[in-house]
Design a binder for these strands. Structure first.
Lengths: 207, 207
DNA sequence: GTCTATAATTCGATAGAC
DNA sequence: GTCTATCGAATTATAGAC
């Protein structure tokens, strides 16, 4: 899955007799990691079409042809650079009336320190394939989390969908559109306002 | 600001005894309208970069050069095609405890029958200038509406920001990303679930 | 008003020297 | 592994014939 194999030092030692157990560390790992970092940033700020391979290569201070050599195509680069893991906690260990607060806080800290999700969101909004990847994240990560909290299996998709409208709306307005009044909100303010919403969407009886 | 005042046509002889009040109907108005319709649809479904002038012209069954002639540039075309009016009702006439329901229902019906907002949202997500136009809509239309409902002027931007996170999140997941469980929700279901959220964001005391 | 032809860029991708 | 050079395709935008 993860293509995140950052070699500790810039000049990775090939170490003569190593190659059996570990997945063959390449001498170019540092370069590859630099490319992925630059790609994530460009995709997050410019979107898929405007994030050109040339610009990404320039950011990574390497030749554009290397990007093609390593990742085959622009789509391959995007797939390698953006692999969203929401890292959702085990909600079965959280008190029932605290899941809203726990989730909002989790997403906030995750998104503040990582622009991978912003990249996926921006690309998903402007590209059909990107939207497909967003749905994948929803299906494989958000649905199982909702299943841990929601008693009625029948209602899980609806509950998860409602959760998505609120949390993706926060991500959109704060990190993509960057509406000033949303950016101005402090993390704890957001938690205080949104936690009751998420709590109700997941656990309250149907209206 | 509407950019619907293109340069006067090269040879535009107003009908002999045309009325003096109406803003000079041109013979090409049907063509212009067809271009704008096609542009709105392409921008809404493909985003700014992938919506090419060629494709828009093909949809409108005219020559690509006509688009340039009428609107000067791709940006000019976008500005002319997408001018979002949220048509927000006068909230001072709505019972205080019904503003949430009224707003959610209003946005739903507006968005279901008009893809202009979807176009602006998709473009705003992938383009810096587009994000600026989204902020314009927020500032000029959503803020005044919130001001009608929120008693404390100090809190108006925050309240409007919270409203934006929920409603834009709905628009994003339903019309742009088209997450199946969100698309599956019926209009009245959405109103029932989201109205209390919006109501609280606008009128409840700060948490 | 409408269309053809094309200029001027820019991009993704390829070939091959060193 | 790295780079130069370039191809082929697509785009916006312009010039000008009819």
């Amino acid at each position: 899955m993860s293509v995140d194999q950052p070699s500790p030092s810039t000049t990775a030692p090939p170490t003569a007799a190593s190659s059996t157990a570990t997945p063959s560390p390449r001498r170019s790992d540092a370069t590859r990691a630099a490319i992925l970092d630059a790609a994530r940033e460009r995709f997050a700020t410019d979107g898929y079409e405007r994030a050109t391979i040339r610009a990404i290569a320039r950011d990574a201070r390497i030749d554009p042809s290397m990007v093609m050599r390593y990742y085959g195509s622009k789509e391959g680069l995007f797939a390698a650079a953006v692999s969203v893991d929401l890292k959702l906690p085990d909600l079965s260990g959280v008190p029932r009336d605290q899941v809203g607060r726990a989730l909002v806080r989790h997403f906030l800290t995750l998104w503040e320190e990582n622009e991978e999700f912003t990249a996926l969101l921006r690309v998903g909004a402007g590209n059909r394939a990107g939207a497909g990847r967003m749905e994948e994240v929803f299906r494989e990560q958000l649905l199982p989390a909702a299943r841990q909290v929601c008693p009625d299996p029948e209602q899980v998709p609806t509950r998860a969908a409602l959760l998505a409208t609120q949390m993706l709306g926060l991500a959109l307005t704060r990190y993509v559109l960057r509406l000033p009044p949303v950016e101005a909100l402090h993390g704890e303010e957001i938690v205080a306002w949104l936690a009751p919403t998420v709590q109700r969407y997941l656990t309250a009886p149907s209206p």
